[in-house]
Structure formats: structure tokens, C-alpha cells
């Protein structure tokens, strides 16, 4: 009874009349469905949802708390003055980290010096607190610069392909072929020691992993129909790359970058340990380790253990946070942007 009307309309143009069941049932259901949606999801964007997932991750929150504490102590360890104007007057550190006290050399932990003092009588607690400034800023600045180099290059390589890809990725391959320390030693030998030289050396090895990672993601994201849709609308390449492709390809890079801060701090410490870091005597954690090397044999463990612990704690926390970020932004690969045929 029902099929005849369907079949006879075969070659006629016109609205589809679905017979045999009542379409109003569906329309009603649609209505109700929308109404429920209004209640449950009131336009929460992906960042909000990611943050909500992150908050449920205990270990990541612990990591975040440790980092917050370290950040706090390091900022308030000594006053901060920019061009003579003090913008942060507090001083939590009990001593000036650069002040030598020759009356108290190589003292073990005590009430006055909870972490002990080093070979020139400097208070190690103050140096560890203050030294966080070097390590943390090196970590953040290096990753920041590496991102700003690696992301555009990786995006260009992945999006355009061809010779652009070839040039950028061969450069990446060449840099990858060098062991990090060899590259860093060579660079610092040429440039000399110093804060920015060290950052340059670190950036040189860090950006390549971001570029490679993003390129791979871009290759898959650019196949998405919404990218073709933007092209069909006549959007320019620049807007397609930075509006449609990169935001949907960034998730793994963000995870990598979070974890990368830890790696960079570790590498900076390694450079400091080898004497390639900052100027000798600066209270950077790696350099402190290096200076304490000789005293370790004499049983003065506190000189190396406390900066070592600081590095360990920071890198561990960064890794916890990084894992949390990974789980938050990428539950089952949901952020690759495709969404594909799921649902």
C-alpha cells in the first residue's frame, strides 16, 4: 500500500513524500531534542571543556600546585626592579644569594641555613629559591621562541608541501642528526657563554621537534572538509592556515611544549653542569650542581642535593602537568579536528 506512491513518483521532480510512517513523530522528537540541548550544553568551547577534564586529574593538579609554589617562591625570593623602579618589593629568601659569608663556609643544614652553605659561604636555600628565576625563565623563553619558529615553519611545510616542505624538513633532519650536546657545545664555543647564547643553543634543538610534529598534524588536518570548505569560500591561504588548520593541529604540540619546558630546564642544567651554561657563580640550578661536584666527595652532600632536588621536582611537576594537558586536550584523539565518522 505504501510503496506504490513511492515508486510511481520515480521520475517526477518534487518534494519527497514519505509515506508509511508519520513524519510528525520525527519533527516532535527533533524539537524535544533541541530543547534538551539548550539545558545541557550552553555553548562551552573546547578550552573550557579541556580545563574541566584537567581539573579532574589529581596528579596533574598536584604538579600544577608544585609549579605554582615554585613560581611563587622564585618570584618573591628577591625584590624585582626594572630600570630602578621596584615592582616586587618582597624578599622571602633569608640571604642575598650572591653574598658570600666567609665566616660560614661549607656548613651543613642548620636553623640559620636550612639547606647549608657552599664553598664561599653563600646560603643554598636562597640560591635555590632565586635560581628558579634562571631555570624557569630559560624553560619558558626557550619553549616560547621555539614555538614561534617551529609552528609557522611546520605549518608552511605541511600545508604547502612541495619544495617548501622539502627545504624545511631537510633542515630539520640535519639538525636532528646532531647530538644535542655536540651542537650546543659548538654553538657556545662560537658565541660564548651567557643567558641568551644558551637560549639560542636550546632553541636550535627544540624547535625542530615542534616543526616536525605540527607538520605531521597539518598533513592530516588539511585534508578535512572544513579546510576545503574555506577554500571553496575563497578564503586566503594565510587565513586558512591560521584559522582552520593550525588551531586544529596544535593539541599535540601544546602537550609537547608543556613537557618541553621540563626537558629544556634539564638540558639547561646539563649545560650548566658542563660549564657551558651561564657565567660561573650564577645561582642557576645546573651551575650550582657543577660547583658542588668536588665537594660531594668530601661528604658535603647538601651543596648538590638541594639544587638537584629542585630540578627533579620541577621537571617531575612539568611532566605531570604535561600528561594532564594531554589527557585534557586529546581524549581519544578527539582534537585532531576531524571527528570523522564518529557518532
Amino acid at each position: 500500500m505504501s510503496h506504490e506512491s513511492q515508486r510511481t513518483t520515480t521520475t517526477e521532480r518534487g518534494r519527497i513524500r514519505v509515506t508509511g510512517f508519520d513524519t510528525s513523530v520525527f519533527e516532535d522528537r527533533d524539537e524535544r531534542f533541541e530543547w534538551q540541548q539548550d539545558e545541557s550544553t550552553v555553548s562551552r568551547d573546547r578550552m573550557t571543556r579541556a580545563w574541566e577534564r584537567f581539573k579532574r586529574n589529581r596528579t596533574a593538579l598536584v604538579g600544577l600546585a608544585i609549579i605554582a609554589v615554585m613560581l611563587f617562591t622564585t618570584i618573591f625570593a628577591r625584590p624585582i626592579a626594572i630600570e630602578g623602579i621596584t615592582i616586587q618589593p618582597f624578599s622571602l629568601a633569608p640571604f642575598d644569594p650572591t653574598n658570600s659569608n666567609f665566616g660560614a663556609l661549607n656548613q651543613g643544614p642548620s636553623a640559620a641555613h636550612p639547606f647549608g652553605t657552599d664553598w664561599s659561604g653563600k646560603d643554598i636555600l636562597s640560591r635555590v629559591m632565586y635560581g628558579g628565576r634562571y631555570s624557569l625563565t630559560i624553560g619558558v623563553i626557550t619553549v616560547g621562541i621555539a614555538l614561534s619558529v617551529g609552528v609557522p615553519l611546520g605549518a608552511l611545510a605541511g600545508y604547502y608541501g612541495g619544495w617548501i616542505d622539502e627545504v624545511i624538513m631537510r633542515l630539520v633532519d640535519i639538525l636532528y642528526a646532531f647530538p644535542f650536546l655536540v651542537l650546543a657545545i659548538a654553538l657556545i664555543a662560537v658565541l660564548g657563554q651567557g643567558f641568551w647564547n644558551m637560549i639560542t643553543a636550546l632553541v636550535l634543538v627544540v624547535w625542530i621537534s615542534y616543526a616536525r610534529l605540527l607538520r605531521g598534524e597539518v598533513l592530516s588536518v588539511k585534508e578535512n572538509e572544513y579546510v576545503t570548505a574555506a577554500k571553496a569560500l575563497g578564503a586566503r591561504d594565510r587565513s586558512i592556515i591560521f584559522r582552520h588548520v593550525v588551531p586544529n593541529a596544535m593539541a599535540p604540540v601544546i602537550v609537547q611544549a608543556t613537557l618541553g619546558i621540563g626537558t629544556v630546564v634539564l638540558n639547561a642544567a646539563a649545560l650548566g653542569f658542563l660549564g657551558l651554561g651561564l657565567e660561573p657563580g650564577s645561582p642557576e640550578w645546573g651551575s650550582m650542581l657543577a660547583r658542588g661536584r668536588s665537594s660531594l666527595i668530601q661528604g658535603q652532600w647538601w651543596i648538590t642535593v638541594f639544587p638537584g632536588l629542585a630540578i627533579f621536582l620541577f621537571v617531575l611537576s612539568i611532566n605531570l602537568v604535561g600528561d594532564g594537558v594531554r589527557d585534557a586536550v586529546d581524549p581519544q584523539g578527539d582534537t585532531s579536528g576531524g571527528a570523522g565518522v564518529r557518532e
Partner: peptide, 13 residues
């Protein structure tokens, strides 16, 4: 152009 897969043709962000 109207695309095939409505789950892939809209930028989720």
C-alpha cells in the same frame, strides 16, 4: 559547495 560529511566539514573550533 556543500560537503558530504557534516562532522568533518565544520571547523570544530
Amino acid at each position: 559547495f556543500v560537503f558530504q560529511n557534516p562532522f568533518a566539514s565544520l571547523n570544530p573550533r
